[in-house]
Simulated scan of single mutants.
Amino acid sequence: MSVSTAKAPAKNAYLAGVRDGWPFIFVVIPFSTLFGVVATDAGLTLAQAMGFTVLVIAGAAQFAALQMMMENAGIIFVLLAALAVNLRMAMYSASLVPHLGAAPLWQRALVSYLNFDQTYITSITRYEARPEMTVAERFQYFVGVATPITPLWYGMTLVGIYAGEAIPEAWALDFILPITFLAMVGPMMKSLAHVAAAAVSIIVALSLINLPSGTGLLIAALAAMVTGAAVETWMERRA
């Protein structure tokens, strides 16, 4: 097989990834713009906000950490909140190992950086549907999915930062962050376990509101995870 022929499947896989990834821009554009606006309103500088979005590149974790920062929580609590929200990425990584574990180290490092909800869900679905794909093709497809998403995530965050600077303080944008979380969590309420976890988190967080900033929220998050797992187990046994 010639070199040009060998490269063709990988190139085709990359283009297929780009094709499957571009519809996500309709979610990425408003979400990243909103982060830029809220980050500015929270007092982050241009360098801080952009460094945050480039290094973390995980919307839910960024908003969770930003919420804790706005409440003047300690750095440990900020990091723990972001880690709790992003624990699912560890499961994503583990499930990608059978498909990309044989890739070179630099490719695995790049996939690790670009591993977020959209790239993972789209790619793993493709891998399972087409087990004949080579490791090179899988890598190219993954990067292809990330190609239309990642630059927009950076760019629209920058747009949001400048937009936030232009918005008068009298507009009081503090309400945007809790509304954003409600919009994120609402569609996830698909089972009794989800509803139970949400209810417990609300009750515990409100009960512990007088604890040091951030402590109550982390305890509420832990209680919610335990509740969700317990209800899920109970439902499976009942079924």
Rank of each mutant, 00 (worst) to 15 (best):
A221R: 01
L177T: 08
G216M: 05
P187S: 12
V195G: 00
L222G: 10
L192W: 13
G155E: 05
L158H: 01
D174F: 02
G186P: 00
L218E: 05
V200F: 03
L218W: 03
L217H: 00
N210A: 12
M188Q: 15
L206V: 08
L211R: 12
S207G: 15
Y154M: 13
S213A: 15
A199H: 03
P178W: 10
I176Y: 09
L173H: 07
I203M: 12
L206Y: 07
M188E: 09
L211W: 14
I202K: 06
T157Q: 11
F175I: 14
A224E: 08
A163R: 04
P168E: 11
V200Y: 02
P212E: 08
A205S: 14
L192I: 08
L192N: 08
P168G: 10
L173D: 09
A205H: 07
V159R: 08
I167Q: 13
L208S: 04
I161G: 01
M188L: 14
E165M: 14
L208Y: 03
A221D: 07
A183S: 15
A221T: 15
V204I: 15
A220P: 07
M184P: 09
A197T: 00
H194P: 00
M156L: 15
M184Y: 12
W171G: 01
P168N: 11
L211D: 03
L222W: 03
A197V: 00
V185F: 14
Y154D: 09
I167N: 10
G164P: 13
I161S: 05
I219S: 02
I202N: 07
G186K: 10
P212S: 11
V159W: 01
M189K: 02
V200M: 08
A196T: 06
